[in-house]
């Protein structure tokens, strides 16, 4: 009897707390039962899924379908009923090039400039991001003083809005910004216009986007590093393994599943680069940091001769690339899961 007292007291407390819930449940019980009689058990499941499905339909599915329809219409009108059907004309305009290697020979040269800019961005940003994330994770995995503090420091930019990231770095990099001030104060250098120099603007776009996202990827890699049993490193120590060989032969292969995930996620994100760079450089100087999303945004909404149909077609072409990448990512995480089960 004695041993039961605390648990029965606890159950009395939960009972009291649950009373209003029970009361409400009692009220809706009857209509729900009635509904279940009509719909059956699986029907009830659909009923409870309805709110989520509605949100998904309104904000994802419908826009997607409309986007496909828009991509097959022409003109500058916003509303569908005042647009004319043009079939695949927008697509053929996008893809109409004398040579795909020279945007000057293309009918829609800005699309190809944006595409090649994006390709260069992806090609340089992703490997760099991966290396920086890996180094960060390796350092944070060591027994540092105030390790949690440093982890938070590296993760912090991830929590910032991209617009804030763009603004912060513009304050630093603009002509009268912090960097030029510091260079002047320390070595007396003349101010340099970082963001209007083709090379430096591109470098800044890459650097800032890495700074903004590296914490997220480092966190994934850190989790991977911590999942490697300490014993394995001790076995390697007993085996007399040099640190560089430990890295190449043990850490890296065991981290490979996480690295693959990070690689694909970073690729998907890099293809969609836009907000922080747009705030930082506005796509300039000229079109040198104009990427695909910016092209789509400006073509569809921002330019004087807006062309929603062309923008929609471009976004669908880009979407296809993302679908392929996402399928690759799904494939990888499935394989990882299967490996984990073994």
């Amino acid at each position: 009897m004695n041993a039961q007292t605390p648990s029965s007291a606890a159950s009395r407390l939960t009972g009291a707390l649950l009373a209003p819930v029970r009361y409400l449940a009692g009220i809706i019980d009857l209509p729900l039962r009635g509904l279940q009689k009509v719909t059956g058990l699986t029907g009830m499941a659909s009923f409870f899924l309805l709110p989520n499905m509605a949100i998904f339909t309104i904000f994802v599915l419908l826009p997607l379908i409309m986007n496909v329809i828009y991509s097959m219409t022409g003109g500058t009108a916003i509303f569908l009923d005042s647009r004319t059907f043009v079939g695949a004309e927008q697509y053929s305009r996008l893809l109409d090039c004398g040579s795909y290697l020279d945007s000057g020979t293309c009918a829609e040269d800005r699309f190809w400039i944006a595409t090649s800019n994006t390709a260069w961005f992806v090609l340089l940003q992703v490997p760099l991001l991966l290396v920086v994330a890996l180094v960060t994770a390796l350092v944070l995995n060591r027994e540092l003083k105030a390790r949690s503090f440093w982890r938070a420091v590296f993760f912090f930019p991830v929590l910032l809005s991209p617009v804030v990231v763009g603004l912060i770095w513009r304050w630093i990099l603009q002509r009268q910004g912090l960097l030029n001030l510091m260079l002047f104060e320390t070595v007396g250098a003349q101010p340099h216009t970082w963001l209007t120099d083709r090379f430096w603007a591109f470098a800044a776009a890459i650097g800032v986007s890495i700074w903004a996202h590296v914490g997220f990827y480092a966190l994934i890699l850190l989790a991977g590093l911590q999942a490697i049993p300490k014993d394995i490193y001790e076995a390697a120590e007993m085996d007399g393994t040099r640190p560089s060989r430990v890295f190449w032969r043990i850490t890296l292969p065991l981290l490979m599943p996480n690295l693959l995930v990070v690689l694909v996620l970073a690729l998907i994100r890099a293809v969609q680069v836009f907000d922080e760079v747009y705030v930082l450089t506005g796509g300039g100087p000229g079109t040198s940091t104009m990427y695909l999303i910016q092209y789509i945004f400006e073509t569809g909404f921002a330019s004087q001769l807006r062309n929603p149909g062309l923008a929609a077609a471009a976004s669908i072409l880009m979407g296809l690339v993302l679908v392929v990448l996402t399928l690759v990512q799904l494939g990888i995480s499935r394989t990882n899961e299967r490996k984990g089960q073994r």
Binding site: P229, D231, A235, E237, M238, I250
Partner: peptide, 18 residues
């Protein structure tokens, strides 16, 4: 250092390189 002591260890978890 461990490697230079001429000893070999068998771990409870085996610690094989997976």
């Amino acid at each position: 250092p461990a490697a230079d002591r001429g000893l070999a260890m068998v771990f409870q978890s085996y610690a094989l390189y997976p």
